[in-house]
Design a protein around this nucleic acid. Sequence first.
DNA 1: CGCCCGTTTGACAATGCTCAATGTTCGTGG
DNA 2: CCACGAACATTGAGCATTGTCAAACGGGCG
Lengths: 224, 224
Amino acid sequence: MQKNVEKISIFSSLSPEYIRKMENITQVTKYSPGKVIFMENDPGTGFYGILEGRIKIYKSSPLGKEHILHIFGPGEVFAEAAVFAGRDFPASATALEESVLVFFPRDSFRALLGENPDLSLTLLGLMSMRLRQMVGKVEELSLKEVPARLAAHLLLLGDNSGKDEFQLDINKSQLASLLGTIPETLSRVIRRMKDEELISIKGNRVKLLDIQSLDELARGVFRL
Amino acid sequence: MQKNVEKISIFSSLSPEYIRKMENITQVTKYSPGKVIFMENDPGTGFYGILEGRIKIYKSSPLGKEHILHIFGPGEVFAEAAVFAGRDFPASATALEESVLVFFPRDSFRALLGENPDLSLTLLGLMSMRLRQMVGKVEELSLKEVPARLAAHLLLLGDNSGKDEFQLDINKSQLASLLGTIPETLSRVIRRMKDEELISIKGNRVKLLDIQSLDELARGVFRL
DNA sequence: CGCCCGTTTGACAATGCTCAATGTTCGTGG
DNA sequence: CCACGAACATTGAGCATTGTCAAACGGGCG
């Protein structure tokens, strides 16, 4: 199977021979949708890069509830913190689609990392961004209510796509889990946002009608 | 003023001459209680180490609510992610006590970092732990209720002190903010935990009476 | 002694969750 | 091509947890 480590963005600027060395230590695996890649508390023996597909990272509670922390796509890596913390995975990972992953074993990766100080810096940058995102998540959960979180999320999607009309790339149950709520609540909030003509939505096709108000809603300036 | 960079734990194992170089780029400042060190959205021009005192890192909402993310003490560093993300600070920092901080300017620090690849690894380890902590916080906020969060926090304090009796080192308003709630709610939850004889509390002196139940409560197995 | 801050308590409101029922969509197979 | 089922989505009713507002309390310090 093709390894194509250079498709992983944190490695894209590395020299060809270094990339080849990387490829020597990795192992490529396919995962079908719904397949669990690792579970919370599994020993963190390495990290993964995504060649194809999408992966959700989530925490689940004893009572079966689950909160999606992040969804990663092609070119991204995940669980990299396990390499340096030397601890168990703090969350679980499952494939959302047919996915192809490269696995980097912890020890061989660390050995190779020693040869390339620049890569350490790249990783430090990556982890800084991760930390920032998590801080943002904490802020949203504790300081904002569901409508604000949804507004923020939609605005982000709009920004990423560059348009004010786009498709949700996950179903609404998962979106609820990503926003730290449940499908029923999400459904009702969407309803209200439609009624207030902030957005229009049909299936997974969303259109932002009133960016201004959405923005104020996201910042907590006003309430639905 | 004494710089004593070796008192900062991530630097403690560095060679004396390297430490001296560090000290050349740093600058030491005193902060009185309540003094703001930086605010969210300030440009992240470097990071801080704590020689003396304690610092709270927090997010605040437009409406004046605040959520404490972390409280750091002597030997710890904070805001280190700003060095690598090259972005603004995602949260604010304020001194809780009379504090003495060493400031490491971003650019000179990065230059020095290049000379010492091991330090990069140490930092990667540190940031991995930070990330893990934040993931834990997200889990608690979205998957657990206030009694569970309080129980978990008290058990942690008990663990850290090694005893089942200890003092809260912050007042209850701040504890509430750290747990992602408000003083009124915290007060009521403490009340219930006393009534159920899980803990006893007098002023800031806490005693854990029923570790077993506290643990189940923290894990969400049962409810108050 | 009296003030101030932090804490506690009470009454109330609201946000979001639970449970249950009904709708919708879409793919499969008759 | 239509019918059926499964998964997802929506809606309603009721309730639990937590936040809001207001008042009273308490302890420490000038």
